[in-house]
Design a protein around this nucleic acid. Structure first.
Lengths: 248, 248
DNA sequence: GTGCCTTTGTGAAGCCATGCACAAAGTGAG
DNA sequence: CTCACTTTGTGCATGGCTTCACAAAGGCAC
């Protein structure tokens, strides 16, 4: 099924460590920190484009929309990459964060489900921009198969396993209807994929060792509605009753 | 322009309660809980469709992909809506959660930016399904203005303020390119909107009292890449060096 | 070198969320 | 009515994340 597959990153064992090992990296980086690193990276890229050589935690935090103490602690988990009295070297920090996130290597991504959302994703510049390459677009609808989108030809989901195996796909994006998502999920896992980004509004059941991240548009809206209601109604407590005639 | 706008959560003093006060609701519901309520709601709707009358915390937690103790604690923040020895009445709980989230009312949403993503959002069934109604589609590109998408005609962003005001839009979805996002953001806030769902890859600067939720596809991918890299390399410590020739 | 200024990196405290474990509350059988 | 069983609601302990506040470290001027 894919002998040496998903080992996207070359096993860079033996690679001598040059300078001192930054203490903090010994054991895992907190999830909360990992989730913010891409944010810092984006802010840093903005600074780099404008030619800024160094940046203080204060300024970078401002650009990333976080508190500067949190930023410093986050960065301290990667190692000690700043210079007191000066700040952080922008280029250097970009490199360190990119490496930590695994963006210095090339990730092949397959998108399953080429509806409106799948198309949007395929065309989304942010994918290509940083280490990610769309290596396959798949759909179950014969009507869609064969279409050319963002330079790729849509293939039939029958090809799912072979696309994953042959092109070294290690991350799969599921943008199918909810009903198809679990089935697709099972198949890609069977094919060896352990990282899934799910846009379908279902909770995917996966075995241990498989990472699923979920993006759910309607959930985000509902959370906004909750807060908006709070603001609008002047307070949470309104009526407690259950409409007339209802049992319970 | 909505005079009393952004005044986040108003002091909810004096407000008479009808039946007994569900203790826990007196003060705000934890954000973490709010973020999970839509999940429970979806699971409950699935059960309701299959005609299930009641459900235990164990079963509902399973369907929602969380731990049952957490589910019970979350629900306890809304009030005491279960029956010991039996479980929760599905219909009743759906109503209570919907009400808490503000989904028993109708929310007018405007989508700004009708590119691939905006189209996908406009066609996304999940919007309409639950209290949300797309009341406007706007784009700056004259080429796109006039197109009919999901039953609506795309309008020019010049109309932004009037669309918001006249149609009572209270939630705006920004799906523009990154460069336009802040400008759109400023305008919708000036027009009185205090809830924004941002798909553009930028950190929006907003005044206090405005809620911004951010959905960022590339960030999700980067987080996946991080974990995938970890799995693949068998451990966190690899190389520490900075490519030759680089200072610092 | 010395002294001053800036900014990092981190100890410590506080806060919030998670999950266990169990008493309380309800059902249903006999 | 009583008893056995189920399931909720929650007190409590644990752990992780955030924030404060400051000592340590480096740059710069002289």
């Amino acid at each position: 099924m894919r002998p040496g597959a998903h080992r996207p990153s070359v096993p860079l064992e033996h690679r001598h460590v040059i300078r001192r090992i930054p203490q903090a990296r010994e054991r895992g980086i907190p999830d909360a920190t990992v989730a913010r690193l891409p944010l810092y990276l984006r802010a840093l890229n903005g600074l780099a484009e404008r030619g800024t050589p160094t940046v203080s935690s204060e300024d970078l935090a401002l650009a990333a929309g976080v508190n500067s103490a949190k930023l410093r602690k986050d960065l301290s988990h990667l190692g000690s990459y700043g210079t007191r009295g000066v700040g952080y070297d922008v280029q250097y920090l970009i490199y360190q964060i990119s490496r930590e996130l695994g963006l210095t290597q090339d990730w092949a991504v397959a998108i399953v489900g080429v509806g409106n959302l799948g198309r949007a994703l395929a065309n989304y510049g942010g994918f290509v921009s940083r280490g990610f390459r769309v290596a396959g677009l798949l759909d179950a609808d014969p009507e869609v198969v064969g279409d050319r989108i963002a330079g790729l030809v849509v293939e039939h989901t029958d090809e799912l396993e072979s696309v994953i195996t042959e092109r070294g796909v290690s991350i799969v994006v599921i943008a199918t209807p909810a009903t198809a998502a679990q089935h697709v999920c099972d198949r890609v896992i069977a094919a060896g994929v352990t990282s899934i980004l799910n846009f379908a509004p279902v909770v995917l059941a996966v075995p241990d060792g498989v990472d699923v991240r979920k993006v759910d548009l309607s959930i985000e809206l509902q959370i906004l509605a909750f807060h908006e209601q709070r603001k609008a109604s002047g307070g949470p407590i309104m009526a407690e009753e259950w409409p007339d005639g209802v049992v319970m």
